[in-house]
Design a protein around this nucleic acid. Structure first.
Lengths: 218, 218
DNA sequence: GCCTCCCGGATTGCGTCCAGTCTCGGAATT
DNA sequence: AATTCCGAGACTGGACGCAATCCGGGAGGC
Protein backbone atom coordinates (compact mmCIF):
# COMPACT_ATOMS: atom_id res chain seq x y z
CA UNK A 1 0.00 0.00 0.00
CA UNK A 2 2.99 2.35 0.02
CA UNK A 3 4.67 4.18 -2.80
CA UNK A 4 6.20 1.01 -4.19
CA UNK A 5 2.73 -0.08 -5.15
CA UNK A 6 1.98 3.15 -6.90
CA UNK A 7 4.74 3.06 -9.47
CA UNK A 8 3.87 0.87 -12.37
CA UNK A 9 6.12 -2.18 -11.96
CA UNK A 10 7.79 -2.80 -15.29
CA UNK A 11 5.43 -5.48 -16.43
CA UNK A 12 7.27 -8.11 -18.34
CA UNK A 13 4.68 -10.80 -18.19
CA UNK A 14 5.73 -14.15 -19.53
CA UNK A 15 4.47 -14.76 -23.03
CA UNK A 16 2.32 -17.69 -22.04
CA UNK A 17 0.46 -15.54 -19.56
CA UNK A 18 -0.22 -12.91 -22.16
CA UNK A 19 -1.31 -15.61 -24.57
CA UNK A 20 -3.74 -17.08 -22.05
CA UNK A 21 -5.29 -13.68 -21.55
CA UNK A 22 -5.71 -12.93 -25.21
CA UNK A 23 -7.07 -16.33 -26.08
CA UNK A 24 -9.44 -16.33 -23.15
CA UNK A 25 -10.81 -12.99 -24.24
CA UNK A 26 -11.31 -14.18 -27.76
CA UNK A 27 -13.02 -17.34 -26.61
CA UNK A 28 -15.26 -15.69 -24.05
CA UNK A 29 -16.23 -12.98 -26.45
CA UNK A 30 -17.00 -15.54 -29.12
CA UNK A 31 -14.49 -14.42 -31.71
CA UNK A 32 -13.17 -17.96 -31.44
CA UNK A 33 -16.33 -19.97 -31.90
CA UNK A 34 -17.17 -23.12 -29.93
CA UNK A 35 -15.95 -26.18 -31.75
CA UNK A 36 -13.36 -24.27 -33.75
CA UNK A 37 -10.08 -26.04 -34.25
CA UNK A 38 -7.07 -24.16 -32.92
CA UNK A 39 -4.12 -24.37 -35.25
CA UNK A 40 -0.91 -23.83 -33.34
CA UNK A 41 1.08 -22.35 -36.20
CA UNK A 42 -1.66 -19.98 -37.17
CA UNK A 43 -2.14 -18.70 -33.64
CA UNK A 44 1.61 -18.43 -33.19
CA UNK A 45 1.75 -16.15 -36.19
CA UNK A 46 -1.21 -14.11 -35.01
CA UNK A 47 0.16 -13.65 -31.52
CA UNK A 48 3.73 -13.23 -32.66
CA UNK A 49 5.07 -15.92 -30.36
CA UNK A 50 6.48 -19.39 -30.84
CA UNK A 51 4.82 -22.69 -30.16
CA UNK A 52 6.25 -23.33 -26.73
CA UNK A 53 4.46 -20.57 -24.82
CA UNK A 54 1.33 -21.12 -26.87
CA UNK A 55 1.24 -24.76 -25.92
CA UNK A 56 1.58 -23.83 -22.28
CA UNK A 57 -1.34 -21.48 -22.72
CA UNK A 58 -3.38 -24.29 -24.25
CA UNK A 59 -2.85 -26.46 -21.23
CA UNK A 60 -4.02 -23.73 -18.90
CA UNK A 61 -7.11 -22.94 -20.92
CA UNK A 62 -7.91 -26.63 -21.02
CA UNK A 63 -7.71 -26.73 -17.24
CA UNK A 64 -10.20 -23.87 -17.16
CA UNK A 65 -12.48 -25.82 -19.42
CA UNK A 66 -12.42 -23.25 -22.20
CA UNK A 67 -10.75 -25.51 -24.72
CA UNK A 68 -10.46 -29.24 -25.19
CA UNK A 69 -7.21 -31.01 -25.96
CA UNK A 70 -7.55 -33.93 -28.31
CA UNK A 71 -4.44 -36.09 -28.04
CA UNK A 72 -2.37 -35.85 -31.20
CA UNK A 73 -5.14 -33.91 -32.84
CA UNK A 74 -4.71 -30.51 -31.35
CA UNK A 75 -7.10 -28.27 -29.51
CA UNK A 76 -10.57 -26.95 -30.12
CA UNK A 77 -12.72 -24.39 -28.39
CA UNK A 78 -14.94 -26.25 -25.95
CA UNK A 79 -18.57 -26.48 -26.91
CA UNK A 80 -21.15 -25.01 -24.63
CA UNK A 81 -23.04 -27.89 -23.14
CA UNK A 82 -26.37 -26.71 -21.66
CA UNK A 83 -26.23 -29.48 -19.10
CA UNK A 84 -22.80 -28.44 -17.98
CA UNK A 85 -23.91 -24.85 -17.92
CA UNK A 86 -26.66 -25.72 -15.49
CA UNK A 87 -24.17 -27.44 -13.28
CA UNK A 88 -21.93 -24.40 -13.41
CA UNK A 89 -24.76 -22.15 -12.41
CA UNK A 90 -25.55 -24.34 -9.44
CA UNK A 91 -21.99 -24.01 -8.18
CA UNK A 92 -21.89 -20.31 -8.94
CA UNK A 93 -25.05 -19.97 -6.88
CA UNK A 94 -23.40 -21.54 -3.87
CA UNK A 95 -20.37 -19.32 -4.31
CA UNK A 96 -22.39 -16.15 -4.70
CA UNK A 97 -24.45 -17.04 -1.68
CA UNK A 98 -21.32 -17.40 0.41
CA UNK A 99 -19.89 -14.25 -1.07
CA UNK A 100 -23.03 -12.29 -0.30
CA UNK A 101 -23.04 -13.47 3.27
CA UNK A 102 -19.40 -12.62 3.85
CA UNK A 103 -19.68 -9.35 1.99
CA UNK A 104 -22.59 -8.18 4.11
CA UNK A 105 -20.64 -8.98 7.22
CA UNK A 106 -17.24 -7.70 6.22
CA UNK A 107 -17.41 -5.36 3.28
CA UNK A 108 -15.81 -1.97 3.73
CA UNK A 109 -17.77 1.17 3.05
CA UNK A 110 -15.52 1.80 0.08
CA UNK A 111 -16.43 -1.55 -1.44
CA UNK A 112 -20.09 -0.69 -1.19
CA UNK A 113 -19.43 2.68 -2.73
CA UNK A 114 -17.49 1.08 -5.53
CA UNK A 115 -20.41 -1.20 -6.31
CA UNK A 116 -22.74 1.79 -6.23
CA UNK A 117 -20.60 3.62 -8.73
CA UNK A 118 -20.43 0.61 -11.01
CA UNK A 119 -24.16 0.28 -10.73
CA UNK A 120 -24.64 3.89 -11.79
CA UNK A 121 -22.37 3.28 -14.75
CA UNK A 122 -24.37 0.22 -15.65
CA UNK A 123 -27.63 2.16 -15.46
CA UNK A 124 -26.15 4.70 -17.82
CA UNK A 125 -25.07 1.99 -20.23
CA UNK A 126 -28.55 0.53 -20.12
CA UNK A 127 -30.09 3.93 -20.74
CA UNK A 128 -28.08 4.47 -23.88
CA UNK A 129 -28.55 0.88 -24.98
CA UNK A 130 -24.86 0.06 -24.89
CA UNK A 131 -24.94 -3.69 -24.46
CA UNK A 132 -21.22 -4.24 -24.42
CA UNK A 133 -20.67 -1.67 -21.70
CA UNK A 134 -23.61 -3.10 -19.79
CA UNK A 135 -22.09 -6.56 -19.83
CA UNK A 136 -18.80 -5.20 -18.72
CA UNK A 137 -20.19 -3.24 -15.77
CA UNK A 138 -22.49 -6.07 -14.87
CA UNK A 139 -19.55 -8.45 -14.64
CA UNK A 140 -17.59 -5.90 -12.67
CA UNK A 141 -20.39 -5.55 -10.14
CA UNK A 142 -20.68 -9.25 -9.53
CA UNK A 143 -16.96 -9.60 -9.27
CA UNK A 144 -16.70 -6.66 -6.90
CA UNK A 145 -19.36 -8.20 -4.73
CA UNK A 146 -17.45 -11.43 -4.57
CA UNK A 147 -14.26 -9.55 -3.85
CA UNK A 148 -16.01 -7.73 -1.03
CA UNK A 149 -16.21 -11.09 0.72
CA UNK A 150 -12.52 -10.67 1.45
CA UNK A 151 -11.91 -14.28 0.51
CA UNK A 152 -9.31 -14.57 -2.24
CA UNK A 153 -9.89 -18.28 -2.73
CA UNK A 154 -13.54 -17.58 -3.31
CA UNK A 155 -12.67 -14.88 -5.81
CA UNK A 156 -10.35 -17.16 -7.73
CA UNK A 157 -12.83 -20.01 -7.83
CA UNK A 158 -15.60 -17.69 -8.92
CA UNK A 159 -13.52 -16.15 -11.65
CA UNK A 160 -12.72 -19.48 -13.15
CA UNK A 161 -16.29 -20.68 -13.34
CA UNK A 162 -17.38 -17.31 -14.57
CA UNK A 163 -15.37 -17.50 -17.77
CA UNK A 164 -17.57 -20.22 -19.16
CA UNK A 165 -20.75 -18.51 -18.08
CA UNK A 166 -19.75 -15.23 -19.63
CA UNK A 167 -19.15 -17.06 -22.84
CA UNK A 168 -22.70 -18.33 -22.82
CA UNK A 169 -24.02 -14.86 -22.17
CA UNK A 170 -22.20 -13.43 -25.12
CA UNK A 171 -23.72 -16.13 -27.28
CA UNK A 172 -27.30 -15.70 -26.17
CA UNK A 173 -28.92 -12.49 -27.24
CA UNK A 174 -30.54 -10.58 -24.46
CA UNK A 175 -34.16 -9.62 -24.96
CA UNK A 176 -35.23 -6.11 -24.04
CA UNK A 177 -37.59 -7.45 -21.39
CA UNK A 178 -34.95 -9.59 -19.79
CA UNK A 179 -32.56 -6.68 -19.81
CA UNK A 180 -35.06 -4.44 -18.03
CA UNK A 181 -35.82 -7.18 -15.55
CA UNK A 182 -32.13 -7.71 -14.88
CA UNK A 183 -31.76 -4.01 -14.16
CA UNK A 184 -34.56 -4.14 -11.61
CA UNK A 185 -33.01 -7.18 -10.00
CA UNK A 186 -29.72 -5.36 -9.75
CA UNK A 187 -31.40 -2.41 -8.09
CA UNK A 188 -32.67 -4.71 -5.38
CA UNK A 189 -29.38 -6.51 -5.05
CA UNK A 190 -27.59 -3.23 -4.57
CA UNK A 191 -30.08 -2.12 -1.98
CA UNK A 192 -29.76 -5.34 -0.01
CA UNK A 193 -25.99 -5.16 -0.13
CA UNK A 194 -25.92 -1.52 0.95
CA UNK A 195 -28.20 -2.45 3.84
CA UNK A 196 -26.00 -5.47 4.59
CA UNK A 197 -29.07 -7.65 4.61
CA UNK A 198 -27.41 -10.99 3.99
CA UNK A 199 -30.52 -13.15 3.93
CA UNK A 200 -32.27 -10.94 1.44
CA UNK A 201 -29.13 -10.57 -0.65
CA UNK A 202 -28.78 -14.31 -0.87
CA UNK A 203 -32.38 -14.72 -2.04
CA UNK A 204 -31.99 -11.99 -4.63
CA UNK A 205 -28.72 -13.32 -5.98
CA UNK A 206 -30.22 -16.74 -6.28
CA UNK A 207 -33.22 -15.46 -8.19
CA UNK A 208 -30.99 -13.31 -10.37
CA UNK A 209 -28.82 -16.27 -11.25
CA UNK A 210 -31.81 -18.46 -12.00
CA UNK A 211 -33.21 -15.82 -14.33
CA UNK A 212 -29.84 -15.49 -16.00
CA UNK A 213 -29.67 -19.22 -16.58
CA UNK A 214 -33.14 -19.26 -18.04
CA UNK A 215 -32.24 -16.36 -20.30
CA UNK A 216 -29.06 -18.02 -21.48
CA UNK A 217 -30.71 -21.37 -22.12
CA UNK A 218 -33.70 -19.81 -23.80
CA UNK B 1 -21.19 -48.26 -21.17
CA UNK B 2 -20.81 -51.05 -23.71
CA UNK B 3 -17.92 -53.37 -24.29
CA UNK B 4 -15.77 -50.59 -25.64
CA UNK B 5 -15.57 -49.19 -22.16
CA UNK B 6 -14.53 -52.49 -20.66
CA UNK B 7 -11.37 -53.04 -22.67
CA UNK B 8 -8.47 -51.17 -21.26
CA UNK B 9 -8.02 -48.24 -23.65
CA UNK B 10 -4.36 -48.19 -24.53
CA UNK B 11 -3.43 -45.43 -22.13
CA UNK B 12 -0.85 -43.24 -23.74
CA UNK B 13 -1.23 -40.27 -21.49
CA UNK B 14 0.83 -37.27 -22.47
CA UNK B 15 3.95 -36.91 -20.40
CA UNK B 16 2.90 -33.61 -18.89
CA UNK B 17 -0.25 -35.20 -17.54
CA UNK B 18 1.70 -37.98 -15.93
CA UNK B 19 4.12 -35.41 -14.54
CA UNK B 20 1.31 -33.36 -13.04
CA UNK B 21 -0.02 -36.43 -11.30
CA UNK B 22 3.29 -37.49 -9.86
CA UNK B 23 4.26 -34.03 -8.71
CA UNK B 24 0.87 -33.39 -7.19
CA UNK B 25 1.10 -36.59 -5.21
CA UNK B 26 4.53 -35.73 -3.95
CA UNK B 27 3.45 -32.25 -2.96
CA UNK B 28 0.20 -33.25 -1.31
CA UNK B 29 1.88 -36.04 0.56
CA UNK B 30 4.63 -33.73 1.69
CA UNK B 31 7.57 -35.45 0.10
CA UNK B 32 8.14 -32.14 -1.65
CA UNK B 33 8.10 -29.76 1.28
CA UNK B 34 6.44 -26.34 1.20
CA UNK B 35 8.91 -23.69 0.15
CA UNK B 36 11.21 -26.17 -1.58
CA UNK B 37 12.73 -24.95 -4.81
CA UNK B 38 11.94 -27.06 -7.82
CA UNK B 39 14.92 -27.52 -10.06
CA UNK B 40 13.85 -28.29 -13.59
CA UNK B 41 16.86 -30.34 -14.58
CA UNK B 42 16.78 -32.38 -11.43
CA UNK B 43 13.10 -33.20 -11.76
CA UNK B 44 13.56 -33.94 -15.45
CA UNK B 45 16.16 -36.51 -14.55
CA UNK B 46 14.01 -37.98 -11.80
CA UNK B 47 10.94 -38.26 -13.99
CA UNK B 48 12.85 -39.26 -17.05
CA UNK B 49 11.34 -36.58 -19.23
CA UNK B 50 12.59 -33.43 -20.84
CA UNK B 51 11.98 -29.88 -19.79
CA UNK B 52 9.10 -29.10 -22.10
CA UNK B 53 6.46 -31.39 -20.56
CA UNK B 54 7.75 -30.64 -17.09
CA UNK B 55 7.28 -26.94 -17.60
CA UNK B 56 3.76 -27.52 -18.81
CA UNK B 57 3.13 -29.47 -15.65
CA UNK B 58 4.50 -26.56 -13.61
CA UNK B 59 2.04 -24.18 -15.15
CA UNK B 60 -0.88 -26.44 -14.32
CA UNK B 61 0.22 -26.99 -10.75
CA UNK B 62 0.64 -23.26 -10.37
CA UNK B 63 -2.93 -22.77 -11.55
CA UNK B 64 -4.01 -25.21 -8.87
CA UNK B 65 -2.11 -23.21 -6.30
CA UNK B 66 0.20 -26.04 -5.37
CA UNK B 67 3.36 -24.34 -6.56
CA UNK B 68 4.42 -20.77 -7.16
CA UNK B 69 6.17 -19.59 -10.30
CA UNK B 70 8.72 -16.88 -9.71
CA UNK B 71 9.51 -15.19 -13.02
CA UNK B 72 13.04 -16.04 -14.11
CA UNK B 73 13.66 -17.70 -10.80
CA UNK B 74 11.88 -20.96 -11.20
CA UNK B 75 9.25 -22.67 -9.15
CA UNK B 76 8.80 -23.52 -5.51
CA UNK B 77 6.25 -25.55 -3.62
CA UNK B 78 3.63 -23.13 -2.33
CA UNK B 79 3.74 -22.46 1.37
CA UNK B 80 0.72 -23.29 3.45
CA UNK B 81 -0.70 -19.99 4.53
CA UNK B 82 -3.08 -20.50 7.49
CA UNK B 83 -5.07 -17.50 6.34
CA UNK B 84 -5.49 -18.92 2.89
CA UNK B 85 -6.36 -22.26 4.36
CA UNK B 86 -9.21 -20.69 6.28
CA UNK B 87 -10.46 -19.14 3.09
CA UNK B 88 -10.26 -22.48 1.34
CA UNK B 89 -12.26 -24.13 4.08
CA UNK B 90 -14.95 -21.51 3.79
CA UNK B 91 -15.35 -22.22 0.11
CA UNK B 92 -15.19 -25.95 0.65
CA UNK B 93 -17.97 -25.55 3.19
CA UNK B 94 -20.21 -23.91 0.63
CA UNK B 95 -19.41 -26.61 -1.89
CA UNK B 96 -20.01 -29.46 0.54
CA UNK B 97 -23.27 -27.89 1.61
CA UNK B 98 -24.46 -27.77 -1.96
CA UNK B 99 -23.18 -31.27 -2.57
CA UNK B 100 -24.97 -32.59 0.48
CA UNK B 101 -28.21 -31.02 -0.57
CA UNK B 102 -28.04 -32.34 -4.10
CA UNK B 103 -26.82 -35.73 -2.96
CA UNK B 104 -29.73 -36.17 -0.57
CA UNK B 105 -32.13 -35.31 -3.33
CA UNK B 106 -30.57 -37.23 -6.18
CA UNK B 107 -28.15 -39.85 -4.96
CA UNK B 108 -28.72 -43.37 -6.20
CA UNK B 109 -29.01 -46.22 -3.76
CA UNK B 110 -25.73 -47.55 -5.07
CA UNK B 111 -23.97 -44.30 -4.22
CA UNK B 112 -25.21 -44.53 -0.68
CA UNK B 113 -24.09 -48.13 -0.48
CA UNK B 114 -20.70 -47.19 -1.83
CA UNK B 115 -20.29 -44.60 0.88
CA UNK B 116 -21.39 -47.13 3.46
CA UNK B 117 -18.75 -49.56 2.29
CA UNK B 118 -16.07 -46.92 2.35
CA UNK B 119 -17.17 -45.97 5.81
CA UNK B 120 -16.83 -49.55 6.99
CA UNK B 121 -13.34 -49.69 5.50
CA UNK B 122 -12.49 -46.47 7.27
CA UNK B 123 -13.75 -47.82 10.57
CA UNK B 124 -11.52 -50.83 10.09
CA UNK B 125 -8.54 -48.65 9.32
CA UNK B 126 -9.23 -46.64 12.46
CA UNK B 127 -9.53 -49.80 14.51
CA UNK B 128 -6.11 -51.01 13.46
CA UNK B 129 -4.62 -47.55 13.76
CA UNK B 130 -3.72 -47.30 10.09
CA UNK B 131 -3.57 -43.58 9.60
CA UNK B 132 -2.65 -43.64 5.94
CA UNK B 133 -5.53 -45.92 5.05
CA UNK B 134 -7.83 -43.83 7.20
CA UNK B 135 -6.91 -40.68 5.31
CA UNK B 136 -7.40 -42.40 2.05
CA UNK B 137 -10.85 -43.76 2.86
CA UNK B 138 -11.84 -40.50 4.48
CA UNK B 139 -10.99 -38.62 1.31
CA UNK B 140 -12.80 -41.19 -0.75
CA UNK B 141 -15.95 -40.79 1.32
CA UNK B 142 -16.02 -37.04 0.99
CA UNK B 143 -15.34 -37.25 -2.70
CA UNK B 144 -18.00 -39.90 -3.20
CA UNK B 145 -20.48 -37.71 -1.38
CA UNK B 146 -19.69 -34.83 -3.66
CA UNK B 147 -19.92 -37.08 -6.68
CA UNK B 148 -23.32 -38.25 -5.50
CA UNK B 149 -24.51 -34.72 -6.18
CA UNK B 150 -24.40 -35.63 -9.84
CA UNK B 151 -22.78 -32.29 -10.63
CA UNK B 152 -19.47 -32.75 -12.44
CA UNK B 153 -18.58 -29.07 -12.21
CA UNK B 154 -19.00 -29.26 -8.48
CA UNK B 155 -16.81 -32.34 -8.35
CA UNK B 156 -14.07 -30.70 -10.35
CA UNK B 157 -14.11 -27.54 -8.28
CA UNK B 158 -14.11 -29.51 -5.07
CA UNK B 159 -11.23 -31.67 -6.16
CA UNK B 160 -9.08 -28.72 -6.96
CA UNK B 161 -9.56 -26.99 -3.63
CA UNK B 162 -9.17 -30.27 -1.86
CA UNK B 163 -5.59 -30.78 -2.99
CA UNK B 164 -4.37 -27.93 -0.85
CA UNK B 165 -6.41 -28.99 2.12
CA UNK B 166 -5.18 -32.55 1.95
CA UNK B 167 -1.68 -31.20 2.01
CA UNK B 168 -2.36 -29.41 5.25
CA UNK B 169 -3.83 -32.54 6.76
CA UNK B 170 -0.77 -34.56 5.94
CA UNK B 171 1.34 -31.94 7.63
CA UNK B 172 -0.62 -31.66 10.83
CA UNK B 173 -0.49 -34.69 13.05
CA UNK B 174 -3.84 -35.95 14.13
CA UNK B 175 -4.37 -36.40 17.85
CA UNK B 176 -6.06 -39.56 19.07
CA UNK B 177 -8.92 -37.55 20.48
CA UNK B 178 -9.50 -35.69 17.27
CA UNK B 179 -9.40 -38.92 15.36
CA UNK B 180 -12.03 -40.49 17.56
CA UNK B 181 -14.17 -37.40 17.30
CA UNK B 182 -13.86 -37.39 13.53
CA UNK B 183 -15.03 -40.99 13.44
CA UNK B 184 -18.10 -40.11 15.46
CA UNK B 185 -18.81 -37.19 13.18
CA UNK B 186 -18.56 -39.46 10.19
CA UNK B 187 -21.02 -41.88 11.75
CA UNK B 188 -23.55 -39.11 11.98
CA UNK B 189 -22.81 -37.83 8.51
CA UNK B 190 -23.34 -41.27 7.06
CA UNK B 191 -26.61 -41.66 8.94
CA UNK B 192 -27.91 -38.31 7.72
CA UNK B 193 -26.92 -39.10 4.15
CA UNK B 194 -28.50 -42.55 4.26
CA UNK B 195 -31.67 -40.95 5.58
CA UNK B 196 -31.41 -38.26 2.91
CA UNK B 197 -31.82 -35.62 5.60
CA UNK B 198 -30.32 -32.67 3.75
CA UNK B 199 -30.67 -30.07 6.47
CA UNK B 200 -29.06 -32.27 9.06
CA UNK B 201 -26.35 -33.37 6.66
CA UNK B 202 -25.48 -29.77 5.91
CA UNK B 203 -25.14 -28.96 9.61
CA UNK B 204 -23.00 -32.00 10.24
CA UNK B 205 -20.71 -31.37 7.28
CA UNK B 206 -20.25 -27.82 8.39
CA UNK B 207 -19.34 -28.83 11.91
CA UNK B 208 -17.06 -31.55 10.60
CA UNK B 209 -15.25 -29.11 8.38
CA UNK B 210 -14.88 -26.56 11.17
CA UNK B 211 -13.39 -29.21 13.44
CA UNK B 212 -11.05 -30.26 10.68
CA UNK B 213 -9.88 -26.71 10.22
CA UNK B 214 -9.28 -26.29 13.93
CA UNK B 215 -7.34 -29.53 13.99
CA UNK B 216 -5.20 -28.55 11.04
CA UNK B 217 -4.47 -25.10 12.37
CA UNK B 218 -3.81 -26.34 15.87
C1' DG C 1 35.11 -1.55 7.62
C1' DC C 2 31.11 -1.12 4.74
C1' DC C 3 28.94 -0.28 0.58
C1' DT C 4 28.93 -0.54 -4.44
C1' DC C 5 29.93 -2.44 -8.66
C1' DC C 6 31.00 -6.04 -11.68
C1' DC C 7 31.70 -10.59 -13.39
C1' DG C 8 31.06 -15.80 -13.63
C1' DG C 9 28.07 -19.65 -13.01
C1' DA C 10 23.65 -21.43 -12.94
C1' DT C 11 18.97 -21.40 -14.49
C1' DT C 12 15.00 -19.94 -16.82
C1' DG C 13 12.23 -18.47 -21.08
C1' DC C 14 11.71 -19.06 -25.60
C1' DG C 15 12.69 -20.58 -30.32
C1' DT C 16 13.42 -24.32 -33.21
C1' DC C 17 14.16 -29.19 -34.71
C1' DC C 18 12.92 -34.11 -35.18
C1' DA C 19 10.04 -38.08 -34.87
C1' DG C 20 5.53 -40.22 -34.38
C1' DT C 21 0.60 -39.86 -35.42
C1' DC C 22 -3.37 -38.53 -37.69
C1' DT C 23 -6.08 -36.97 -41.78
C1' DC C 24 -7.34 -36.93 -46.38
C1' DG C 25 -7.36 -38.02 -51.17
C1' DG C 26 -6.48 -41.23 -54.84
C1' DA C 27 -5.76 -45.78 -56.73
C1' DA C 28 -6.53 -50.60 -56.86
C1' DT C 29 -9.61 -54.36 -55.99
C1' DT C 30 -13.96 -56.73 -55.52
C1' DA D 1 -19.87 -48.32 -58.16
C1' DA D 2 -18.51 -48.98 -53.54
C1' DT D 3 -14.99 -50.25 -50.40
C1' DT D 4 -10.51 -50.94 -48.85
C1' DC D 5 -5.79 -49.92 -48.85
C1' DC D 6 -2.01 -46.93 -49.05
C1' DG D 7 0.95 -42.90 -49.24
C1' DA D 8 1.73 -37.91 -49.05
C1' DG D 9 1.08 -33.98 -46.34
C1' DA D 10 0.10 -31.66 -42.08
C1' DC D 11 0.25 -31.36 -37.35
C1' DT D 12 1.24 -32.41 -32.61
C1' DG D 13 4.30 -34.09 -28.74
C1' DG D 14 8.63 -34.03 -27.04
C1' DA D 15 13.76 -32.82 -27.11
C1' DC D 16 17.26 -29.65 -27.44
C1' DG D 17 19.96 -25.16 -28.05
C1' DC D 18 20.66 -20.35 -27.40
C1' DA D 19 20.11 -15.90 -25.44
C1' DA D 20 18.52 -13.29 -21.43
C1' DT D 21 18.11 -13.03 -16.56
C1' DC D 22 19.21 -13.71 -11.89
C1' DC D 23 22.16 -14.83 -7.85
C1' DG D 24 26.53 -15.00 -5.29
C1' DG D 25 31.19 -13.72 -4.51
C1' DG D 26 35.13 -10.88 -4.93
C1' DA D 27 37.50 -6.54 -6.16
C1' DG D 28 37.52 -1.72 -5.79
C1' DG D 29 36.18 2.80 -3.90
C1' DC D 30 34.55 5.80 -0.11
Amino acid sequence: MDAAQAIEPIQRRPLHEEAVGRLRDRIVQGSLAPGARLNERLLCAQLGISRTPLREAFKLLAAEGLIELLPNRGAMVARLDPERLKHSFAVMGALEALAGELACARASAESIDAVKRLHADMVAAHARGDLAAYFSFNQAIHLKLVEASGNPVLVQTYRQLNANVRRARYMANLSAERWDAAMREHEEILAAFAARDAARLKRLLDAHLAAKLASVLG
